[in-house]
Write a protein that binds this DNA or RNA. Sequence first.
DNA 1: GCTTGACCTCAACTTAGGTTGAGGAATTAC
DNA 2: GTAATTCCTCAACCTAAGTTGAGGTCAAGC
Lengths: 154, 154
Amino acid sequence: MLSTDLLSIGQLAARTGLSVSAIRFYEAKGLVHPIRNTGGQRRFPRSDIRRLSFVVIAQMLGLSIQDIEGQLRRLPEGRTPNRKDWNDISRAVRATIDDKIAALTRMRERLDGCIGCGCLSLKTCALYNREDRAARLGAGPRYVVAEFSESDLG
Amino acid sequence: MLSTDLLSIGQLAARTGLSVSAIRFYEAKGLVHPIRNTGGQRRFPRSDIRRLSFVVIAQMLGLSIQDIEGQLRRLPEGRTPNRKDWNDISRAVRATIDDKIAALTRMRERLDGCIGCGCLSLKTCALYNREDRAARLGAGPRYVVAEFSESDLG
DNA sequence: GCTTGACCTCAACTTAGGTTGAGGAATTAC
DNA sequence: GTAATTCCTCAACCTAAGTTGAGGTCAAGC
């Protein structure tokens, strides 16, 4: 029988809804730090239920694993986030959501200006400019694209 | 000297600002269909400048390569998109941007309700529900997470 | 004491959108 | 005619957030 204070990885998975492999992955990324029993198996404190709940919620808000690890690491002594910590973090998250909405709104406005235009010119199209190329809306790696000149577009 | 009607891949890259490797990649994905000269090198019609401009702009609006390929394929005879085509497509794109903005706005409203709450409970947190887990805001593969029950959270 | 289930590590695979490099062939410039 | 570019293919690599499987160990029930 396990100590009432410690959970096996399977028990933690059942409590959080995460898969066992995801929890191992999160450990590798530094989000939890279980101890090992004599047989080498992971044992988690009960507070990791809350810690992983925080991870799941923060992820839904658009934070990457790395962002979350950074937030958790700033807490003293690897403490699990409490009400005030969550308050601080969620205000920061709100700002990034605001930014995303603002970027999409700007893009929509420009698109509206372009509907009916049909120019499709890299030279004159208002949708196409260097700033936005660096901050595309889709997923995937971002690379800087070389400068270019053109003459017969549009 | 190349025919004035055909461009080498390097020339097309210079005209569009894309890298040579990206253009080869786009060919593999079916976005352009160059012919080959006697030496086996790619030769592109001038209209592919506009075609690839369309690709770049559509990508910035959040369309995936596959989406773009689908749009281009719907055009008769592999024609390069003209004003009316662009008009049709951009209206569809506007709808997807609207959806993204709406999703982010809903998330922001719920987050506002949660700031100061600090519950961090998977059971009661308004930020945490099945619908949103299926439509997370971040990048990366999506997997369905198993149902779970809990007792000592919150 | 033995079987079953939970656990361990490590490596390979997934999607998207490409990049980078090796090794070789074609084209262009002088 | 030769040197310098440009081009060719093919395979391996990159990120993110995990999953899947192989091969082996640990713990618990009876």
